[in-house]
């Protein structure tokens, strides 16, 4: 009975899936650009009916950030649950890191789009970063600020491998309340952050493999290095455009 009427909070999902059923038939032409025709207006009407006092996401202002910060405690709790949930479903540390990376990637695709929209959305000539160095600096400063509220502590280029860059955070906020068991000392929960970085770089078409590593020093026991290994195509393109 509980499922007979969808909860108003789920209205976006239930309505879109309902109204899309009849549009999935493959009767339209089969070219690359063909799409099921856009859903008709009755969908919109039922959304309004489902939640009269709940504005839908298209009516909200994307610039409202004041008072929208999440408390550190709430995030620490959520992230702890994420790690535990993931750990139950994987075999080994590598797998766990990969899963955390995947989860971070989903955050990253949204971070890049929303962050740049907030910065450029009102500009007459919105710009995207196309230079490798400025993209890396943007990740180091703006992305970190948007996600963690502070810039990262350092960015370095690897001496032996020209395709590797490192972003260093002395005290990553997401690991502040995590102590990794001794037998899993390899694990870095910042793989989640690595996933965010990977998505941002992918979005700006600088594909790379991004991993997280513990690099503690006496002063900062939580110090973490996000290692960015760029794909060869990126370096080739940089060389061409010089």
């Amino acid at each position: 009975m509980a499922y007979a009427q969808p909860h108003p909070r789920l209205s976006v999902v239930s309505n879109s899936s309902l109204s899309s059923v009849d549009h999935l038939s493959p009767t339209t032409s089969s070219t690359r650009f063909s799409l099921p025709s856009a859903p008709s207006l009755h969908g919109a009407a039922s959304i309004v009916k489902a939640g009269p006092n709940r504005p839908n996401i298209y009516e909200r202002n994307l610039n409202k950030t004041r008072g929208a910060e999440v408390s550190g405690a709430a995030f620490a709790f959520l992230f702890s649950e994420i790690v535990q949930y993931t750990q139950k479903r994987v075999s080994g540390i590598n797998d766990l890191e990969r899963q955390l990376n995947t989860l971070g990637y989903r955050i990253g695709t949204r971070v890049i789009e929303l962050m740049v929209w907030r910065a450029e959305g009102s500009s007459k000539t919105p710009k995207r970063e196309i230079k490798l160095i400025s993209v890396l600096m943007m990740v180091h400063t703006q992305v970190w600020k948007a996600v963690f509220g502070k810039p990262a502590d350092a960015i370095e280029r690897s001496v032996e491998n020209p395709d590797e860059y490192m972003i260093i955070d002395n005290d990553p906020p997401i690991e502040r309340h995590i102590s990794v068991p001794r037998d899993m000392s390899q694990l870095s929960c910042s793989s989640f952050t690595a996933g965010i970085v990977e998505a941002v770089l992918d979005g700006l078409s600088f594909p790379a493999r991004v991993t997280a590593h513990n690099t503690p020093n006496p002063q900062f026991p939580n110090r973490t290095t996000i290692l960015i290994k760029l794909e060869k195509s990126v370096l080739d393109r940089e060389e061409l455009l010089k």
């Binding site: 976006v12 879109s16 099921p36 859903p39």
Partner: peptide, 16 residues
């Protein structure tokens, strides 16, 4: 895109 119920890079079916 920021709607958690929307999977990135899938067809946009929202009537709104």
């Amino acid at each position: 895109l920021v709607n958690p119920f929307h999977t990135a890079h899938t067809t946009i079916r929202s009537s709104v």
